[in-house]
Amino acid sequence: MAQEMSFPSAGHHEKDSGAVGSGSTEFINMNLLRNKMTEILKARGQKFETDLNHETNSIYQGRIKPVKGDVIMDLHQDAGPESATGITIVVSDNAGPDSLNMAKETLDGLARITRLKSRGVIKASMTPRKTIGILNKAGTAILVELGFITNKNDMIVFYDKIDEIACFLCDMLYKYDKNK
């Protein structure tokens, strides 16, 4: 049997800050969330491998070796007009039932915790990039767009609920890991 493994990642790195808004960067916010999650995973004794702050996405994706049954969760924040709000989950265009179920459950749980608008589960081809490589790795994979960094209310909610969000996302990693 394969070793149980989860792959939470901050989505951006030191040289690619991602979206900017509300006095912060996507990298800083998702790095904070990912680090809270890794503390929880360590305390629970769950195995994980995550991105390093100096790694590009392609280096990280080339380094990790998820297998069927593992779980990948890439953490991001959206950007748009100040009025844009909500949570979106992205899956591969070829997402299997586990990825789709995890996406829906994660979306519903985050919307409940944050009370932010649920913007739905979408396929990677519906995003501006049209394809997201990490979603095509082996295992169950989702990309979380956790609010809009350009919406001050979304960011207030994010910082206020970050501990609860981190615990919930770790619960999702554990629940959908089929190699435990």
Rank of each mutant, 00 (worst) to 15 (best):
Q3W: 12
E4K: 10
M5H: 05
S6A: 10
S6N: 11
P8W: 04
A10W: 03
A10H: 11
A10I: 00
H12M: 10
H12Q: 15
H13G: 06
E14K: 15
D16P: 04
D16H: 13
S17I: 14
S17L: 15
S22V: 09
T25V: 11
E26Q: 09
E26K: 07
F27P: 01
I28V: 15
N29K: 13
R34N: 11
K36N: 03
K36C: 00
A43S: 15
R44V: 03
R44H: 03
R44Y: 01
G45T: 09
E49T: 11
D51H: 09
D51R: 11
N53H: 09
H54E: 15
E55M: 13
N57K: 15
Y60I: 09
Q61N: 14
R63L: 12
P66G: 13
V67G: 09
K68E: 14
K68P: 06
G69Q: 11
D70M: 10
D70T: 12
D70P: 07
D70G: 10
V71F: 14
D74P: 01
L75A: 02
L75I: 10
H76Y: 04
H76C: 06
Q77Y: 00
D78Q: 02
D78A: 04
D78Y: 00
A79R: 05
A79P: 01
G80Y: 07
G80W: 08
E82D: 11
A84Q: 09
G86C: 08
G86W: 03
G86N: 03
I87F: 05
V90A: 04
V91H: 00
S92K: 05
S92I: 01
S92D: 10
N94R: 10
N94W: 05
A95D: 07
S99T: 04
N101R: 13
M102E: 04
K104P: 01
K104C: 00
E105P: 01
E105C: 02
T106L: 00
A111M: 02
A111I: 04
I113Y: 11
T114Q: 06
R115P: 00
S118D: 14
S118E: 13
R119K: 15
G120V: 09
V121P: 04
V121H: 02
V121E: 00
I122W: 08
K123T: 08
K123D: 06
P128I: 03
K130D: 08
K130L: 14
I134G: 07
K137F: 11
G139L: 14
A141I: 01
L143F: 02
L143M: 11
V144K: 06
L146K: 02
L146D: 03
F148H: 06
I149G: 01
I149W: 01
T150L: 07
N151E: 06
N151C: 05
N151L: 02
N151A: 04
K152A: 14
K152H: 10
M155P: 08
Y159K: 15
K161E: 12
K161R: 15
I162V: 15
C167D: 12
C167N: 13
C170F: 05
M172G: 01
Y174N: 05
Y176W: 15
D177W: 00
K178F: 08
